[in-house]
Amino acid sequence: MKRLLTLLFIIILTSCGEKSKNATDTKSIEAKNNDLIHVVETSRQIFEFKKPTVLIVELDSLETEKLKNSDEENFYTAADDIIWYNAKLLKKMDSLKIPVVQSDKDTIEIKTPHATHIIVKDSTFSLYTYFYFDGNKVSKQDVLDLLDQ
């Protein structure tokens, strides 16, 4: 129960901030003179999914350090819980023969037979943020929902 409460606390902590972007949003910055400035993405990875696949988007070392500094007292306990759930997920997906891929890039492009999806990392992402391609669509998923499949 304590692990679940700690995990819930971290999810709530990391969910505070800007609303998540849809998978098709592009990054741009509003300039002071109201002109849009295109941000060149230097951290990008492309995946091609043809069958059900789980994508785990991880925070890079700088993002992890920033999260740790925001609440160091609970960070290690919550990180331990998230890593434990992640290990359970990897074991379950292996037993179901569902591939799992991981990335710490800021922008991820997923090409599927039906569409191309762009995922841009934002402030709602936790240590591990999960996306699931079910064969038709890509959706952001909670680790506990993936474990219940």
Rank of each mutant, 00 (worst) to 15 (best):
S95W: 04
S70E: 10
F125H: 03
T107Q: 10
W84E: 12
S103P: 10
D94E: 15
T64N: 01
V100S: 03
E63K: 00
E73P: 01
Y85G: 05
F75Q: 04
S70R: 09
Y76K: 07
D122W: 02
K92C: 09
I98M: 06
T124Y: 03
K121L: 02
S103A: 15
I98V: 13
N69K: 15
A87D: 13
H114V: 14
M93D: 11
T112Y: 07
H117L: 12
H114D: 15
K97C: 13
I118N: 04
V100H: 05
D80Q: 08
T112A: 09
L96C: 14
S123L: 03
I83P: 02
D71Y: 11
P113Y: 05
L59P: 00
T107K: 08
K97P: 07
A79H: 04
E73D: 03
N69A: 15
K88L: 14
Q102G: 03
S61W: 02
K92Y: 14
F75E: 03
E109G: 11
S70Q: 11
L90C: 14
T107V: 10
K111T: 12
K91N: 13
L89Q: 07
N69V: 09
F75C: 04
I108W: 02
D81I: 06
V101W: 02
T64H: 00
A78S: 13
P99M: 08
D122H: 04
K66T: 01
V101M: 04
A115D: 13
L96Q: 15
L59M: 01
K68P: 05
D71N: 14
Y76A: 08
N74E: 07
V100Y: 03
K88R: 12
T124G: 10
L59T: 00
P113E: 06
N86A: 06
D71K: 09
F125Y: 13
A78L: 05
S70I: 07
K121Q: 09
T116I: 12
L67I: 01
L89V: 06
K92I: 11
L90D: 14
V100L: 06
D71S: 09
S61Q: 10
A87Q: 12
I83C: 08
E63T: 00
T107I: 06
K92F: 11
S61P: 08
S95V: 10
K66F: 00
A78T: 08
K121V: 01
D80P: 02
K121T: 02
D80S: 12
S103T: 15
T124Q: 11
K105G: 05
I119Q: 10
I82R: 12
L67M: 11
P99N: 14
H117M: 13
D122F: 02
W84Y: 15
